[in-house]
Amino acid sequence: MSENILKELCNRVLSLFKQTESKEENAKEVACNRLRVVLMQDRTNLTPELLQRMRRELVELLSKYVEMDKDALELNFDQEGDQMALMLSIPVIRAKDEAEIEEALKTEEVDNETEDEEDSDSEEEISEENFEEDEASEEEVNEEIIEKNDENLQEDEATEENK
């Protein structure tokens, strides 16, 4: 019993020291880190919510092609001289094989079809989903672009088949 009490007392005293120490050490670090976050927002007009959303969408997009450690994804803005760079670092756990990638793309198409049954063209819906919160006019423009891309793709496929 007495041993336990002693141990606890010892730990408490130690933790007290640790706390005060780390506080003193951190004042400058805290300032630097807070400033970096604030300046990133000031420079890019990206709020924390938007950054979070960007992160989420990137994970969604990339995990179709590779299996990665989603929680370890790092998204930072780096200032290199006059140029600002978006640095994305994701630990890849494993490369997906062709079949898996195809399946991921297929299930996505199916998902989109079930989500929105009014439209038959599945490619269109991907764009709709991504720009859900944008204005209608922008959506239309995006759809148009993607439609055009589709046409090009189909043409390419056709020429390939001919060969």
């Binding site: 050490e25 951190n26 970096r36 001289g81």
Partner: peptide, 18 residues
């Protein structure tokens, strides 16, 4: 204050503002 890590150092500010 910089020595005791209570204030941002010259290097910190220069790096942040580049």
């Amino acid at each position: 204050l910089i020595k005791s890590n209570d204030m941002m150092s010259v290097e910190d500010v220069v790096e942040i503002l580049s």
